[in-house]
Design a binder for these strands. Structure first.
Length: 287
DNA sequence: CTCAGCTCCTGCGGGC
DNA sequence: TGCCCGCAGGAGCTGA
């Protein structure tokens, strides 16, 4: 589920519980997720202090004071729950215990502060790895990633170069993390709608001005989603410390059969399957 | 190099 | 009510 905005929101929510704080103990409740954990991961995390919590694409990166970085990917169904911190209890309840571990709680970071950070992931497509910080950029999962879509190096010239000559659908191209990092199925649909580009259009056959619009639409879509996540983050932290799930008002995603929201357009949102995944679009205003 | 298809795993909602 | 099916927000890997 989590795409770049959700991961960024989780990062912001986790930062107060992690940055500058020491991990007392890492409790691994299974051997791995998508891949096995490094055999010494629990031992190396115990006693380490988190210097900084960063994000690259959909990865969370917790730099430790011992020269290593904990890499976390939430996969499709991963969530983070913070408990035992001020502000995470239900209002009006005297509820300072930690909740009992639930099904699919796979990793629990017990912080020296008394807070706990629980990683829950039913489908186990998520991942955790621990690697030397100096080798991070060469890490298999990060090395081939394209630029951050909100960064300066993601612009029309870059995108044009990467899409040139490609006959694959623009939808598939934008899901390719090597072209631009952090987009997933939802925000690709939303950005293509904002840019009025049909998801099946050949990636290499989009004119310069429309590519400009696409870059802007991707940025605007992600910024809006991060802003929405920030507001729901406060609600979630007040409620139960759970991070990672919040509702956005999508313009096309999941809205098959609804009227297009553009005032002049009388189109009906359609769903099509591309590469086994649903694309939502307005056939009238997306070309 | 590009691209399509398969795969991992669990949970949920719809149809019968 | 229960069962079966399709579908779900990711992404690595394989083989053409």
């Amino acid at each position: 589920m989590p795409e770049l905005p959700e991961v960024e929101t989780v990062r912001r929510g986790l930062a107060p519980a992690l940055e500058g704080q020491r991990i007392a103990r890492a409790e691994l409740r299974r051997d791995g997720l998508r891949w096995p954990f490094p055999p010494d991961m629990a031992a190396k995390l115990g006693g380490a202090r988190v210097v900084q919590l960063r994000r690259r694409s959909k990865y969370l990166l917790a730099d430790l004071d011992r020269g290593e970085t904990l890499l976390i990917h939430l996969g499709m169904s991963g969530r983070m729950v913070v408990s035992g911190m001020a502000g995470t209890q239900m209002p009006g309840q005297f509820h300072f215990d930690h909740p009992a571990p639930e099904k699919h709680d796979h990793v629990i970071l017990h912080m020296e502060s008394g807070a706990r950070i629980t990683f829950n992931d039913p489908r186990r497509f998520g991942a955790m790895d621990l690697i030397p910080t100096a080798l991070l950029e060469g890490h298999k999962l990060l090395a081939a990633l394209g630029p951050e879509p909100l960064g300066n190096s993601f612009n029309r010239a870059f995108l044009a170069a990467r899409l040139k000559g490609r006959r694959t659908a623009i939808k598939a191209a934008l899901l390719d993390q090597r072209i631009v990092a952090g987009l997933g199925n939802i925000y690709v649909c939303e950005a293509l709608f904002r840019a009025r580009i049909h998801p099946a259009r050949a990636a290499g056959r989009i004119g310069a001005d429309r590519l400009d619009a696409l870059v802007g639409a991707i940025r605007d879509t992600l910024r809006d989603a991060i802003a929405a996540g920030g507001s729901s983050l406060r609600d979630y932290r007040q409620a139960d410390g759970e991070l990672g799930y919040f509702q956005h008002a999508f313009r096309v995603y999941g809205r098959e059969g609804d009227a297009c929201i553009l005032p002049q357009c009388n189109g009906i949102i359609r769903r099509m399957v591309q590469g086994g995944r649903s694309s939502y679009y307005c056939p009238r205003c997306q070309r």
